[in-house]
Amino acid sequence: MSNTKTISQVMARAKGFKVPNVGKIPTLFKREYLDQRTGLITMPMVVAGLTLLALILGLITMEYQLGDEITLDLGKVTVTVDGEVYSEADFEGEFKGQRLTEIMSKAFTGAISFGILLILPFVVFFSLLGTLYDDRRERSYLFWKSMPISDTKEVLTKFGFNVFAGPLVLFTWGLALSIVAMVIVTPFIWAHGGSAFDLLWGPAPFISMWFGAAGTYWVLALWILPILAWLILASAYAPKKPLIFAVVPIIAIVVAESILRTGDSVILEAIGSRFVEFGYIMEDIFDHANRMQRDDIKINLLRPGDAWTALMASLASGKFWIGQLFTGAFLAGAIYLRRYKV
């Protein structure tokens, strides 16, 4: 047992080196995860189940009605309906020029997760509104405060988990759903003479999509960080019904602005601009990507590189940083209230 020196002991020996106390953060994150089980496990599981059910029913219906008339073959995929043969070249409108392989692989990596992505904003919104309020309501804050964790660390880990880490669980659900859906579709492709690898598994960008979607979401979250911080402030403050205490002050300001006839509502403009500015950045990225790519690709999926580009563009924006001043103020308020509001 001579090699039992821990890293921290070794670090402690190195003079003047202070180990930042991050050792408790995994435990704090795990607690938040357990607290959000409904939004992060139960709800996406139900949505994923319903999505797969719809997929299976759709496949069976299609098989029943058109089964004999579809022929899939790499390079020349054709769909025969009522004796008329359609091929890729016949696609109209938005899908014109798309290759079937791309449509299929993107549908099964992106579109299939739509339901799960739909619940993401609700999970983030209500977890932030509830987190500090629920501790007070069930009086468990007295237990949390009996542990050697500062109120600053409590609030920041709650905020960090619910804004950044929790949603990764939902993106992972989306990824898992894609893979299961592709497994289900595979025998149907085989039944029609297609190669599941060439049509679906090979081109499916699921790993890159996971990073792209998660990364882009993080950049969006950074833009709307002041709004999210406002929610946790309401959670720290509200004597009851935090939703009302989050929304009513905003409505009151809007009403006051309209009575004073100050023109456009400054507060609504400020809230909206967080989304609009992010939207401009993403639009630029997509435009750029479209110019750079081959003409025949119109459906864009988020890629990890896009998220990075968006982050860099955001950091260079003054409006982005003005927002972060509010984020800091709201979080400081939430920490203060957690600390002294008993």
């Binding site: 607290d35 069930e138 009086r139 468990s140 007295l142 237990f143």
Partner: peptide, 8 residues
Amino acid sequence: SDVATLPR
């Protein structure tokens, strides 16, 4: 502090 402050 008080009974039943453990997170339910």
